[in-house]
């Protein structure tokens, strides 16, 4: 029992859970509105897009890289998809848009993949570069402007509800979007891939020690390439879902989300240096930040305090995990530290 406690105390997930619980209780006490069905549904629906992005960012970080291009990639791909469908006056269902955006995502992700896997360039700089290129293509070549009317298939998908939650006191209702299923499905797929396929273990292996992974027989190039393709697809899907849910395509309003998403992933205990981290932590970290973004208003905190709290959460969260790491190193002593490499 004691060991379990101790084990628990060392995990970021534990602290994040505490933070989430504390924050929700604080909001509940203050406003009485947190544990209402419609608020929970609102939160979950706000989680869909950041959650999908976080899954992609998580896999990249586990492999020892970092991707800051996903918002630009998602924007370009969702914009291209919507533009083409609007221009051809598409009247069909959601399937074609999804397939299209997955294809665009795969192609754009492959660009990242080639640059990072083949040319072995630093992922941060590469994705900064491709993010600039994607933005340039979207705004320059495609001359992106806001599309206010999207194909009916997309908007009906975006507004379709699994169920509708009603707040018994206020009578406010919130719809649980069908798109939430997308997050659940992708989460399950990512979980399966990471835990039950050699490919997924290969991602962890590369993040732990790339040279060893190569020597052990992992196809490092292929793993990395497919990773960025896959992340491109997930991000694209997130972009498309956002368009559907907002029933309009705004070319730039996803840009800048990368910071918050990465912060959430790292807050959940994923080592930025790669190789370790759990999906649970990743999702918990994201949930915490989504709560900060969406629920502070219930605490009576003006919305413009959001950014400040986001920053504080990020710094405190990372500070704690950084201090843990350096304390662990100190405890093991300088000698073992050196030998370890």
């Amino acid at each position: 029992m004691n060991r379990i406690m101790k084990n628990l105390m060392q995990r970021n997930e534990f602290y994040i859970s505490i933070a989430i619980v504390a924050l929700s209780i604080a909001i509940q006490l203050r406003s009485g509105q947190f544990f209402t069905s419609n608020n929970i549904v609102d939160l979950l629906s706000a989680l869909i897009v950041p959650g999908l992005f976080a899954l992609g960012a998580f896999m990249v970080i586990v492999s020892g890289g970092v991707d800051v291009s996903f918002p630009a990639l998602a924007s370009l791909s969702m914009y291209a998809t919507t533009r083409i469908l609007v221009d051809t006056n598409y009247q069909g269902g959601i399937l074609l848009p999804i397939v299209m955006s997955l294809c665009f995502g795969a192609i754009l992700g492959a660009v990242n993949g080639v640059l990072i896997a083949t040319f072995k360039l630093p992922p941060l700089i590469v994705t900064l570069g491709t993010s600039s290129v994607f933005k340039g293509i979207m705004q320059g070549v495609l001359n992106a402007v806001q599309i206010t009317v999207i194909p009916p298939g997309m908007s009906s998908f975006g507004t379709a509800a699994l169920f509708i939650a009603t707040n018994p006191q206020s009578g406010l209702t919130s719809r649980m979007p069908v798109a939430f299923l997308a997050l659940v499905i992708v989460l399950l797929i990512v979980y399966f891939v990471l835990q039950h396929t050699m490919y997924g273990r290969g991602l962890y292996a590369i993040g732990g020690n790339e040279v060893s992974a190569y020597r052990a027989g992992f196809n490092v190039w292929l793993i990395k390439f497919l990773l960025y393709v896959g992340v491109g697809m997930i991000s694209s899907l997130a972009g498309l879902i956002r368009v559907c849910m907002m029933t309009q395509a705004h070319p730039t309003n996803m840009l800048g989300m990368e910071m918050m998403v990465i912060a959430g992933v790292v807050l959940g205990g994923t080592a930025i240096t790669g190789g370790s981290g759990t999906l649970t932590g990743c999702m918990l970290g994201t949930i915490l930040l989504v709560m900060v973004e969406n629920s502070l208003i219930l605490l009576g905190v003006p919305t413009f305090w959001q950014g400040f709290f986001l920053g504080v959460f990020i710094i405190v969260g990372m500070g704690i995990s950084a201090l843990q790491v350096s304390r662990a190193i100190k405890a093991r002593g300088a000698l073992t530290r050196r030998v370890q490499q």
Binding site: M259, I262, A263, Q306, G307, V312, I314, M318, G319
Partner: peptide, 21 residues
């Protein structure tokens, strides 16, 4: 505190922006 610089400054960016807001 030894936070990796990318993350530390990413976090402080949010913080400074938050204060500005």
């Amino acid at each position: 505190v030894k936070i990796p610089p990318i993350l530390a400054t990413l976090g402080s960016y949010e913080l400074f922006r938050g204060i500005a807001i």
